[in-house]
Design a protein around this nucleic acid. Structure first.
Lengths: 126, 126
DNA sequence: ATGACTGTAGCATATCATTTAATAAAATAA
DNA sequence: TTATTTTATTAAATGATATGCTACAGTCAT
């Protein structure tokens, strides 16, 4: 996996920045199925943030069914084929996407621009 | 404009629920260019939430360049052609969209499903 | 001037993000 | 086995923010 970069100027919460970047790396294949993530301690030290913050990032990813953390073992990425889909999570995700798209349109993006941007993003995933 | 619906079970903050619905209504044309929004007080009373919360919703929309609030007059929707685009806001928005798309993919949506969903959402805007 | 309307500011409370410090379980080395 | 290190978790403290209640100050019509 690639190193996690924290942007202190970002309005995004720290644990979400970490979570987002982990998800992006999984989507792009920089973190692979069944790969073992760094320990909470190590990652916290590398990034320069608190253990709890990283812990929360991991727990959120676990809630989403992306990684599993069992009996104090390091977190591992669940293989794509084995991910259990949580209906509630999916619903919230769809709502979030809808809101973002609506906002982009209202802020001046054309429908075409939005579709092009989505395509560009999807071209980056494996 | 249509009435704003608050979902007390949603994990979304109240002021974001209000803001999201306003944006959605603007995108769909239920709120039109140059239309005057209800006063903070009225909307707060109608919805049953505090004026501060509605005030924050309006201020966030103003930051995004969607509405303007001048010298204690009611907030008005800026015409689409007159919206000034804030580079920082646009950058954060693109980042948010990217994160949502990556998350959808990692959680099991196929690229095709994601594109179909985006198309479905965009078909709802005017 | 009065009354009805507007947005804003101050204070209180609850929730949550983040950090610090302490605890307990597991893994590893001796 | 014992000791040391490494791990995640728990508890408590701090700070920031969301939300609510109340009061204030400006605007406008009458």
């Amino acid at each position: 996996m690639l190193p996690i970069q924290i942007d202190t100027n970002s309005p995004l919460l720290l644990y979400m920045q970490v979570g987002n970047q982990l998800i992006e790396q999984i989507a792009k294949g920089h973190i692979q199925d069944d790969e073992m993530l760094p320990s909470i301690r190590n990652m916290a030290q590398d990034i320069g943030i608190n253990i709890h913050t990283v812990s929360k990032s991991y727990r959120e990813l676990e809630k989403k069914g992306i990684i599993k953390m069992e009996n104090r073992l390091k977190a591992t990425v669940i293989a794509r084929s084995n991910r259990r889909l949580d209906e509630t999570q999916l619903h919230h995700l769809e709502l979030s996407i809808k809101n973002m798209i609506m906002e982009a349109y209202v802020m001046g993006y054309s429908k075409k621009q939005i579709k092009q941007y989505i395509t560009k993003v999807l071209d980056q995933v494996q």
